[in-house]
Amino acid sequence: MIKLIDISNKDNAKDVLSIQIPSYEVEAKIIDYYELPPLKDTIDKLQKCEEIFFGFYENTELCGAISLKADENVADIHRLIVHPNHFRKGIAQLLLNFVISKFNVKKVKVATGSKNTPAVNFYIKNGFNKIKGFKVNERLSLIFFEKEL
């Protein structure tokens, strides 16, 4: 089941962080870059990020989450995370589909590490177009995607 997460609730923020860290640790290993900002997030940072969070729950366990900022035209996805124990169950797809169907926007935007092949392939498979690349530093580059709806 997918439901809104009240990130202002400390326990909810703690739950999100408990899946975010292991999820981004997998990405860090894939791209061989361990200084990803989401790995340094805290409960306080999550509560102040001004993103809307939705979670996928299996019974009462939070297995995955998506966060975004949206206006009347664009949904900008900031996180799409799944705990590694729940990889390959279609949770990321369910969360992405949920956001696309829930928000009446014209465009969805997202960015990921350019070396994160599973994420890059996921967005391409879902009809996102590569818009641009951005070199953060010598070891990290990002790809920005958009999907017109």
Rank of each mutant, 00 (worst) to 15 (best):
A70E: 15
S101T: 11
K45N: 09
K125D: 11
V26K: 14
Q20E: 15
K48V: 00
G55N: 11
L39N: 03
E146G: 09
N9H: 10
A92V: 15
K14T: 13
F98C: 11
K107L: 13
F54N: 04
P118I: 10
E35T: 12
G64R: 10
N129G: 08
S23T: 10
F128D: 05
L68Y: 09
L96W: 01
A70R: 15
D32L: 08
P118W: 11
I7C: 01
I7W: 02
D15E: 15
V120A: 02
Y24D: 00
I30W: 04
L80A: 09
L39A: 11
A92T: 14
A75W: 07
S101A: 14
F56A: 03
I131T: 13
T117M: 08
C49A: 14
I131R: 15
L46W: 04
K125F: 12
D41C: 11
V108N: 12
F56G: 04
N59I: 01
L96S: 10
F87W: 13
E35R: 10
L149H: 05
K10P: 06
Q20P: 13
I100H: 04
P22G: 01
I81G: 07
K106E: 13
N9S: 12
F56P: 06
Y57M: 01
E148W: 04
I66A: 05
K40N: 12
Y57A: 01
N126H: 14
F122C: 07
D76P: 05
G90F: 04
I100Y: 07
D71E: 04
V120P: 03
E146S: 08
D41L: 06
K125R: 13
S67A: 05
S18Y: 04
L46K: 07
L62N: 08
K29M: 06
A111E: 12
N121W: 08
G55T: 12
K147M: 09
K3E: 03
I81C: 00
V99Q: 11
A75G: 10
I2V: 10
Q93Y: 10
N126R: 10
Q20R: 09
F103W: 03
I91Y: 08
F87N: 06
E61G: 00
I91G: 01
C63V: 02
S101K: 15
K48Y: 02
K130W: 06
K102S: 05
F122N: 01
K109R: 15
F87I: 06
Y24Q: 11
Y57D: 00
F56Q: 01
S8W: 03
P38F: 09
I30E: 07
H78C: 00
I91W: 06
